[in-house]
Write a protein that binds this DNA or RNA. Sequence first.
DNA 1: GTCTATAAGATGATAGAC
DNA 2: GTCTATCATCTTATAGAC
Lengths: 185, 185
Amino acid sequence: MGTRDQLIDSTRELLWERGYVGTSPKAIQQRAGAGQGSMYHHFAGKKELALAAVRRSADVLLAAADEQLRGPGTAVGRITSYLRREREVLKGCPIGRLTQDPDIVADPVLRAPVDETLTRLRARLTEVLDEGRAAGELPDTTDTAALAAAIVAVLQGGYVLARAANTPEPFDQAVSGVLSLLAAH
Amino acid sequence: MGTRDQLIDSTRELLWERGYVGTSPKAIQQRAGAGQGSMYHHFAGKKELALAAVRRSADVLLAAADEQLRGPGTAVGRITSYLRREREVLKGCPIGRLTQDPDIVADPVLRAPVDETLTRLRARLTEVLDEGRAAGELPDTTDTAALAAAIVAVLQGGYVLARAANTPEPFDQAVSGVLSLLAAH
DNA sequence: GTCTATAAGATGATAGAC
DNA sequence: GTCTATCATCTTATAGAC
């Protein structure tokens, strides 16, 4: 792996752990084992590097979601697999966490990939729910877009509760809560 | 209002807008209209001031939740009122957002009031759901603690989706999604 | 209680040698 | 491509006058 990729990966880790405001170019360089000159040769600055890192993390997130959502099984079964998949709950969501970063949200260029990722994730879940509704798993009256938003929100909010409590328990509870509602629907 | 209270209120605003890492003592002083000497006279430093600010915001949040949750009406009706209450969605949750702050989560003293607030909120919702279950609004088999976690998670995650999209729409969708599941339950 | 002065270290880059 | 200065500014205080 080249120095450029090392820099991107180190930035991805640090953005996940500390956010944009909490991540300094120096910290990125140290983790990547690169000097200042090297970093500023490959990237114009912190912002450009963050953009590359966020885009890569977004690709990874959507690919991981596809693994369960595009798999075999019923719609509700695939969504259950997705929600129950193993996660590093206490680390939170590498994309969702960026919405709490003032410098990310205030900058249209940095916010764009965050927005696009979560919007696509909701769209993908909506598709799965549409299939489930067509197959009779869900009532004809189901608002699939709203349900998709609720499911993604439970994930994102579950991370928040788990990090507050310093245990994955409330995340698991939230997932169980929404799944039992879904099953009874 | 005294200088001390001004400092706390300015810190509350800045923690909400920029988080702990993104908030400097200097910014607090400027917003409060106080000098350095004044701030360090009233508080030992940034951490102590943040602790006072978080505790006050926590009190406000729980009192606001009680307004709908302890009001009249059925359990599901009160929860609907709570979820549909007017909110500054794009600003996010002043307590929940702190879970994305590495210096907050890493410090047991700073994390404690965040944990306590969200835990109490879930407990309060669990009580309301227990009443609803006893009154026959919900099935006897309902796991009220899990449902409470899901409801709080939808709020916290709804904020995340709204901030990513820069519009309250996905927040409202997520709330609608969970409420329609709850109604059909 | 509030003010100004001072300070060691971090931040986010730029410049130019190699 | 990578390295080592260098730099202006910000950060988080402490010290002591008023």
